[in-house]
């Protein structure tokens, strides 16, 4: 059995969205079964199936935030404080 990730896209300008996962012995059978498991009620106008084996996965270490780089977390507070100060100086 292979595991496939199912993506569906509604008509129009919607993007493809992850709809779920299914197990099937091969791509042809996966496509056949995906129709029943994920699009029986017209949930999508287009379908992508991706073999889980082909998905590149970033692990936790790869995604961990560097906590020594506060400058990457600009929430705008410094700029806001400076503008506030300037306003007060003008007043």
């Amino acid at each position: 059995m292979h595991r496939y990730e199912v993506f569906l896209k509604k008509p129009g300008r919607e993007e493809f969205r992850h709809a779920g996962t299914l197990d099937a012995p091969d791509p042809e059978m996966a496509m056949l079964l995906a129709r029943e498991t994920h699009s029986r009620r017209g949930e999508g106008a287009e379908m992508w199936l991706v073999d889980r084996e082909h998905v590149l996965v970033g692990d936790d270490a790869h995604l961990a935030v560097n906590d020594d780089k506060p400058h990457r977390h600009n929430d705008g507070s410094l700029v806001a404080a400076r503008r506030k100060q300037e306003r007060e100086e003008r007043a």
Binding site: L22, A24, L33, E36, R40
Partner: peptide
């Protein structure tokens, strides 16, 4: 025999 087939067959 497996979930996906269960759904397909009952459909």
């Amino acid at each position: 025999p497996f979930l996906e087939e269960d759904l397909a067959f009952c459909s």
